[in-house]
């Protein structure tokens, strides 16, 4: 069985052409990253606003939970047959698909951005204000850089969810790696199905690792704790912190 899958994946013919693996992979990335871009445009500003002002934080917690329970696949099919005919031809399937992927991704980014800003050390925020920073300066120079680790992990999980779910848009006649799964099922070709599944899995893991690397280098070393030079006074610090316990 495994051999069959490997054979399918290693067959050069399956990789080329408009419905080959390469083309499908690019489609998959296109859907995913267009949706992710919209997610960031919506999630980060709103998250920053709520975190900075504290307005609407209750609504966030509630809706994030409810959205997690919403079955994406069902929502997609409902939108296509319920509203697809109201859209321009090119968007009948694409519109609902991107919409669903955005709905899927926004809660993770929004709630993590909000939580990241909320979690900034109140003393640092107080000091920033006390030194005469304006609200915008506090947000951009202090809150945003300190919230970055949480924001990025929200983006990361949104990205993974979107990559995974972009598979199902093949069910509504679109492309992407899900095509192999849907076509394999209807052609009773398990090797094609499993090949497609493995490609999605590898894509997700690869993007996750790539993101982890980016995350390491974007966040200030003062927050991640990866310092350039080992602290020469590490012993002193340790001794002092023990003494104060």
């Amino acid at each position: 069985m495994i051999n069959g899958i490997i054979e399918w994946l290693s067959d050069g013919e399956h990789w080329s052409g408009p419905d080959g693996i390469t083309a499908r992979l690019l489609e998959h990335l296109q859907y995913s990253f267009s949706a992710l871009a919209v997610v960031l445009l919506i999630g980060i500003p709103i998250g920053l606003y709520i975190g900075h002002t504290g307005k609407g934080s209750v609504a966030i917690a509630g809706s994030a939970n409810a959205l997690r329970a919403l079955p994406t696949f069902g929502l997609l099919l409902y939108l296509v047959i319920g509203y697809g005919d109201k859209l321009p031809t090119d968007w009948i399937y694409l519109g609902p698909s991107l919409f669903v992927l955005v709905v899927l991704g926004v809660p993770a980014v929004l709630s993590n951005t909000y939580a990241g800003v909320q979690n900034v050390d109140p003393a640092a925020r107080d000091a920033a204000k006390g030194m005469g920073m304006t609200g915008m300066q506090v947000l951009l120079r202090v809150e945003l850089p300190n919230a970055l680790p949480l924001i990025l992990s929200g983006v990361r999980s949104a990205m993974l969810q979107i990559i995974a779910t972009a598979t199902v848009v093949a069910y509504v006649t679109l492309g992407g790696l899900g095509r192999f799964i849907i076509d394999g099922l209807s052609q009773q070709d398990y090797f094609q199905m499993a090949g497609g599944a493995i490609l999605v899995a590898v894509l997700a893991v690869a993007l996750d690792l790539a993101f982890a690397v980016i995350q390491r280098y974007v966040v200030s070393r003062g927050i991640t704790g990866r310092y350039a030079a080992p602290a020469a006074n590490a012993d002193v610090v340790a001794a002092e912190s023990k003494a104060s316990v």
Partner: peptide, 12 residues
């Protein structure tokens, strides 16, 4: 302005 826990910016 100096406060109790210093309130230094951890990222700087």
């Amino acid at each position: 302005y100096v406060i109790q826990h210093a309130g230094l910016f951890p990222h700087r």
